[in-house]
Amino acid sequence: MQLSVDSIVVAAMDILDRYGLADMTMRRVASTLEVAPGALYWHIKNKQELISAIAERILDSADQADFDGAPAVDADHPAVTIARSCAALRQALLSHRDGAELVMAAMTQPDSTLRPRIVDAFTEELVGIGLDAATAHAGAQALLHQVFGATTFEQAALQNRELLSGDGASTSGAETSDPGVRLLLDALTWRD
């Protein structure tokens, strides 16, 4: 196999999905690819860069997803489009073990563009339904916090149930929508 950024990211994502973020080490990735750990550093500078690359893939999957589940609001809600975006993001995070934790770790790295990418997209959608720029930006940040906080909590609960049951049940793909997103969108779109 030709070692590349893509092959490293794919191997790391497989480890992430099987064992979680804590066990996704550069040494384990190298072992999976049957190369010396030093060989990875020709392509990926460090674990933080690897985390960022995986986070980009997860967010790209949310952007490209054709979300077909039930968003947090009804189809006639003025913010149904952003509700679908929040649901697609949540679904992408849940599709990988520790997905929310990993993307949050990437967003907090210096010079990361991931957080502004999400906030700007949410802000644009909220401005598109008539909110002023300041309210839309604050609402976008609140939605980001809600989606990531709720998803992190949900992933931890799913993994704890898996550990306690011992049956190896999947920790991804929960079907329910996030009621916090609905509350925020109802508040943001409420008019006198």
Score class of each variant (00 low, 15 high):
T113G: 15
M104V: 08
A75L: 12
Q109Y: 02
L114I: 14
V103K: 00
V119P: 02
H96N: 11
R115I: 10
C86H: 13
I118F: 12
D74E: 04
I82A: 05
P71G: 05
L93R: 09
A83Q: 01
H96F: 10
A100W: 10
D68L: 14
P78V: 13
E101Y: 11
C86S: 15
R115C: 12
R117K: 09
L114Q: 13
D76C: 11
P110N: 01
M107P: 02
D68K: 15
R90K: 14
P71V: 06
A106M: 04
S112G: 02
S85Q: 09
A70K: 14
P110F: 01
I118H: 10
P71D: 04
Q91M: 08
A83L: 03
L114A: 13
P71I: 05
A83T: 04
A100V: 11
L89E: 14
D76L: 13
D76R: 12
P116H: 09
V119Q: 04
R90E: 13
A75D: 15
L102M: 07
R115N: 12
D66C: 06
A83E: 03
R90P: 03
P71T: 04
H96L: 04
A70Q: 15
L102T: 01
I82F: 00
A65H: 07
S85L: 11
A83G: 01
R115Q: 14
R90N: 09
I82G: 01
P116G: 05
R97L: 04
R90M: 10
L102C: 05
A88V: 08
D66A: 11
R97H: 03
S95V: 10
D66N: 10
D111F: 03
I82H: 02
A100P: 13
P110H: 01
V103G: 01
D76P: 08
V73Y: 00
D98M: 01
